[in-house]
Design a protein around this nucleic acid. Sequence first.
DNA 1: CGTAGTAAAAATGGATCCATTCTGGCGGGA
DNA 2: TCCCGCCAGAATGGATCCATTTTTACTACG
Lengths: 220, 220
Amino acid sequence: MGDTAPRGEAASERVAAHLRQAILSGEIRPGSRIRQEEIAEQLGASRLPVREALRMLEAEGLTQLEVNKGARVPAFDRAQLDVIYEMRERIETLALRLSLPHLTSAHEAELYRLQDRIEATTDVATFLDLDRQFHLLSYVGCPSGELLASVTRLWNSTQHYRRAFMLHKAEERWMIVNAEHRLLLDAIARRDEVDCERFLSGHIRRTRIQLVDHPEIFDD
Amino acid sequence: MGDTAPRGEAASERVAAHLRQAILSGEIRPGSRIRQEEIAEQLGASRLPVREALRMLEAEGLTQLEVNKGARVPAFDRAQLDVIYEMRERIETLALRLSLPHLTSAHEAELYRLQDRIEATTDVATFLDLDRQFHLLSYVGCPSGELLASVTRLWNSTQHYRRAFMLHKAEERWMIVNAEHRLLLDAIARRDEVDCERFLSGHIRRTRIQLVDHPEIFDD
DNA sequence: CGTAGTAAAAATGGATCCATTCTGGCGGGA
DNA sequence: TCCCGCCAGAATGGATCCATTTTTACTACG
């Protein structure tokens, strides 16, 4: 290796972090195969921590491993993505409800700051990242690690299709998302459970409907 | 090794199957540490497929791995289990709704047969196993693998606490569960989405409330 | 010309060995 | 007496090497 320090951090976690970034950024596309020794050589590690990392990412919904057939990034068709969004609707509204009482004013301020940055950017990659940060931050008060892990898995699974969608209908989508975020933000600031649930489930439902209506997104 | 055939099946999957059974049956209790070489020696394999298996089970919610600290079976307190049951309420009603249109009469017959066996048994371990089979079978028509995996994870996480609960309040719980199962079964046979959702969410909610009300279950 | 069979190449799974990190018990000092 | 630090044993993480499976490309046959 010679560049990064093996001290202090587990090699498998470094590999996992690298692959996680590569998959979420779209560098590695859904359906494509991930060759262990290719990654190992690329990161200056042996194949073993790579296998370990691929298993870690499997628990996060970012890879799928089959015996003797290697690892792939899972790909979804319209029907499958539709279900994932219905899961998001139910899981994330629960997460927000449980998070709401524990959100501090610091969290609130950070949410507003994130939304300002979302409205300021014109870059799709930045938008996707900030949008993800925005929602996940709103769940940060949630006292259940299991629930947060589920939410993260769902976001991981949808990441690629959100990007494909934004690349098509960016300008229109931008405005809708921002309007819905503002409504949600104010409901959060008011600690209004009912409005939070209403706005969030509506936000996810409308995204789902629009997303599934674009066949060109699913050209794999 | 010398006893089991390494042919045809991956060693890591054999190890995973063994550990899965051991954890779900309560042989390995939540919170307890799982030593890699102990399992490896016990099953006549090296430590590598054991690590692999532990990672697989992590994706199923049956183990938790920490760097340099080994693997543990996750344990939950009352608040955490409460959240898991709220997730079950939302996720499983969705799974049943999506499964319902694809259930065949053969599935129905098998569900009735399972319920008959549930009512016939007096053994807690058998009851837990059949109850799990009953519910998971009702979701088998669900077209989404992600959703089924989520449901399975939730059942894995609750398994130990269901058992602890049944060991305490068995006779009372038995009758309630059976009554609720019969209502659910008939709703499934009628393909009645509304009643299915109502009976299932009620079933899970009442189980949650009773379960969380028993502090002795959480003595770890 | 297309397809099935086969063999070489590549990729994955597993075992053994070594390095690093955690754990637990002991002793010394405040 | 209690607490902190240190040392030995044990457990985990990683690297290299070998076996098995998959894949792919080539050849031969229909």
